[in-house]
């Protein structure tokens, strides 16, 4: 495994009772790469994303982030689940942006962004405050830093959530349908921030229905359906001349 592979997933399988949510999904993401995962609802895109930082436990398969096995430790021929503290330590390297923002409602925008670096990474408060203010300015929210989430629009909340992930200075940020819960006119302000982030070299995996964003920003596009990775390749190829007929059908349906 080469040095600049950030995420490597091999045969990730997830079952919910008799239902197979993920069926041997594999993926490799290089440093600085932006990968969009597209596909119909219930295809397992979000579940796969959540396996990468172990918000979801897989039934079999393995995922490495930065060459470190995620969530398990090998002992002989078994993989043992790691303890709470080690799991927390691994998650510090991976940012996550949720569909429903999940900002902490009892904290201001600035406090939300500072919470991780101060409480988890134990960095000095003054230093973190400076960085958090810079990042909030970068996502265009300098004038909202002391607002509570309930005082912000959906688009603003999602930009705070992205700032919260950025302030941890992760190796990788996962986006779980970041614009799906937004009013249509607020989608572009969030996509612009993500575009800017991609341009700065952040490694990103984005589960999305925004094919325009995928076309303009992503290096790689993966199409999933019924828990399987149907097709994965360079964005231009997958979106314009897909190999699989199912991918072509999906793209056509989304565009019409």
């Amino acid at each position: 495994m080469t040095k600049d592979i950030i995420v490597k997933a091999v045969d990730v399988t997830k079952l919910y009772g008799p239902f197979t949510a993920l069926d041997k999904v594999s993926l490799e993401i290089a440093k600085g790469e932006v990968c969009c995962i597209i596909g119909p609802s219930g295809s397992g895109k979000s579940t796969f994303l959540r396996c990468i930082n172990q918000l979801e436990k897989m039934n079999s398969g393995a995922i490495w982030v930065n060459d470190e096995l995620v969530g398990y430790r090998r002992e002989g021929n078994n993989l043992h689940e790691i303890n709470d503290a080690d799991m927390a330590r691994q998650r510090r390297r991976v940012g996550m942006v949720f569909q429903r923002f999940n900002l902490f409602p009892h904290m201001t925008a600035l406090e939300n962004v500072m919470e991780g670096p101060v409480q988890v990474l134990k960095e000095p408060v003054a230093e973190v405050r400076k960085r958090a203010e810079d990042i909030l300015a970068r996502v265009g929210l300098s004038d909202k830093i002391s607002h509570y989430p309930s005082q912000l629009s959906g688009g603003q909340q999602q930009r705070v959530a992205i700032a919260r992930a950025m302030c941890m200075r992760p190796d990788l940020i996962l986006f779980d349908e970041p614009t799906s819960a937004l009013d249509p006119e607020l989608v572009s302000e969030v996509l612009d921030v993500m575009k800017d982030l991609a341009a700065s070299g952040m490694t990103m995996i984005v589960v999305t229905h925004e094919l325009g964003f995928a076309r303009n920003v992503a290096n790689t596009v993966a199409f999933m359906e019924a828990g399987k990775m149907v097709e994965i390749g360079p964005a231009s190829e997958v979106l314009t001349s897909p190999k699989s007929p199912r991918t072509a059908e999906f793209i056509k349906a989304v565009h019409s």
């Binding site: 918000l55 927390a88 949720f98 999940n102 919470e115 409480q119 988890v120």
Partner: peptide, 23 residues
């Protein structure tokens, strides 16, 4: 408390105890 709050706390690398206390 919404389950999304638990997930967001875990996602920024909080341990169970810290998640209970801070979030």
């Amino acid at each position: 408390v919404d389950s999304g709050q638990y997930e967001a706390a875990r996602a920024i690398g909080m341990t169970q105890f810290k998640m209970l206390r801070r979030i």
